[in-house]
Amino acid sequence: MPLIATEALTKRYPNGVVALADLTLGVEPGIVGLVGANGAGKSTLIKILLGLLPPTSGRALVLGLDPAVDAQQVRQRVGYMPENDSLPPGLSAVEFVTHMARMSRLPKSAARERASETLRHVGLYEERYRQIGGYSTGMKQRVKLAQALVHDPDLLLLDEPTNGLDPAGRDAMLVLIQRIGTEFGISVVVCSHLLGEVERICDSLVAIDGGRLLRADRIEAMTTSRDVLVVEVAEGTEELEARLVALGLPVTRDGRALQVPLTAEETYDRILGAVADLDLPLHSLDQRRHRVAELFANGAPTTQEPAHV
């Protein structure tokens, strides 16, 4: 049974904006990245999947249930982490998550037990009795994740879970999501406008743009062994580029970094040799999987690091 299936799903708002246009897709269980620029229709899709918005036409199935008909059953089995701030500052994390567990129909004692347990899983055990108002952004994101996880859903819908986090917090959050998807055995849909980060943890990717499906596929199918080496030097990028081209390497320029496809073992050495010859201060030399962004015709911006960090 597919995790999520939509059939010609269309949502037209009363003001005439078409948020989703004839979207048909099927998603298998696992960690799914839902990517698209802001306004691509990601949030609208989530609201329809939660039964908060009725589709204009077409239909959706979540865990085999139609949210437009069985909204309560769907919501009982789905956990939702919204993009925006959504926590009351005056409560402690454990009280809030317990309350949310009860709102998901867990009995009182089970709610309390699972709230503590879930907060431990997201790494907030020690701080759980402190008021949420005093938490850092990273801790708040973890509380938001905990409340989505507390009632043990079969599907987690995470809307921009790394929003506002610093690079370290971003990585920690992604690792956590990956653990939920693999070790906890809960399917996850991660919405993001940053392709670079979801591709690291996802089994499959769904890209939408302007409410239309760009591409939906397993991640292996999109990134077939196309690793690249990314070289960054503090100065003399042009010199190095010229030198590498002279060496017969197909170099592409990406901002201040240079990308070289990793075709043979000695590519490493040849690049290092070129840098040493030119006596340039080497900043970094990384091996990266070829970014999926480049595989989409109208994909997200092709910078690895998000512009708004």
């Binding site: 867990l106 009995p107 089970a110 693999t182 089994d203």
Partner: peptide
């Protein structure tokens, strides 16, 4: 790749699926 979803499996790291009852709408209200 994710492991197949299996209700009731106790994982090493201690995540436990919830198998207890879920109450009704009156309870949440």
């Amino acid at each position: 790749m994710s492991s197949p979803t299996a209700a009731g499996v106790i994982h090493d790291i201690g995540y436990r699926r919830y198998v207890g009852p879920r109450l009704g709408r009156e309870y949440t209200t």
